[in-house]
């Protein structure tokens, strides 16, 4: 396996606070990697630094060997790095289908004049786009609700739609920000199932998550952070037995969850 993403010496300071300090890790192509840590450990900051939402104070983010530090988020997407949002960030006033179409259409499309009936390959383009959108909706099991306005979807479906929009950009690396936050056990199991299926199709996954049991059963490789530093890294068993991880989580009621 080859290295898809590698992060080295990553640091981020806010004022006098070190949110992330000297963090290094890498993600093998084809794997499912979990990034865990107690509340305020700097997980979300790491996530934002990797996506390009925030700029690191020091360190490097490499994707497929290329340093992407200077690239804004949308250009990282075009390289194959997609993300989902912690809260349900959707095009809430548009239909489910339109949400996915926007994800698909972002990267390419015919020229403006193709919109004029009879000119260009507009119809072929549109039909192809719709076919791909429905394929995706099939994949995340949302075809039946394709014409419903996104804001009217149940919560679990909204989260699946968020994943579908990210998938529409054909990512090599899919980064999920707390994908099961606020979900009941049935929805959580479904999400785990969906993530595995995405992975089986060859997409590498990075999950930032609070829910320990979810991460332990889903991920093959886990990175634990606390106070912006890496505590431990390895298989779920190794990480779970690590005394530093146990200490960091002590008193954090979410360990049991």
């Amino acid at each position: 396996m080859s290295e898809l993403l590698s992060v080295s010496g990553l640091s981020k300071r806010f004022g006098g606070l070190n949110a992330v300090s000297d963090l290094s890790f890498s993600i093998e192509s084809g794997s499912i990697v979990g990034l865990i840590g107690p509340n305020g450990a700097g997980k979300t900051t790491v996530f934002n630094l990797v996506c390009g939402q925030q700029q690191p104070t020091a360190g490097e983010v490499r994707f497929e060997g290329r340093v992407v530090n200077a690239l804004p988020p949308f250009e990282r997407v075009r390289l194959g790095m997609a993300r989902t949002f912690q809260s349900t960030v959707l095009y809430t006033d548009s239909t489910v289908l339109e949400n996915v179409l926007r994800g698909l259409a972002a990267r390419s499309g015919p020229a403006v004049w193709s919109g004029v009936p009879g000119l260009g390959r507009w119809r072929a383009y549109r039909d192809d786009l719709h076919r791909r959108a429905f394929d995706l909706l099939d994949f995340v099991d949302l075809r039946d609700v394709h014409d419903i306005t996104a804001r009217n979807l149940p919560y679990g479906h909204q989260r699946s739609l968020g994943v579908a929009i990210a998938l529409a950009t054909s990512p090599k690396l899919l980064m999920l920000d707390e994908p099961v936050a606020g979900m009941n056990p049935a929805e959580t199991a479904q999400m785990a199932q969906l993530i595995r299926r995405i992975n089986q199709q060859g997409t590498t996954i990075l999950v930032v998550e609070h829910d320990m049991s979810f991460v332990m059963q889903l991920c093959g490789h886990i990175i634990a952070v606390s106070n912006g530093r890496k505590l431990a890294e390895g298989t779920p068993d190794q990480v779970q037995r690590d005394p530093q991880v146990i200490a960091a989580y002590l008193g954090d009621e979410d360990v049991a969850a």
Binding site: C51, P72, P73, F74, V77, A82, R83, F85, V89, L90, Y91, T92, D93, S94, E98, L101, R102, G103, A105, A106, S108, G109, P110, A111, V112, S114, G115, W122, I165, A166, A168, T169
Partner: peptide, 20 residues
């Protein structure tokens, strides 16, 4: 055209548009 879709996307959620 696809640009029309881009404008709708940016209006409805700049954050999501940028992330896609």
């Amino acid at each position: 055209s696809p640009f029309g879709r881009a404008m709708d996307a940016v209006r409805e959620s700049e954050q999501l548009a940028e992330a896609t």
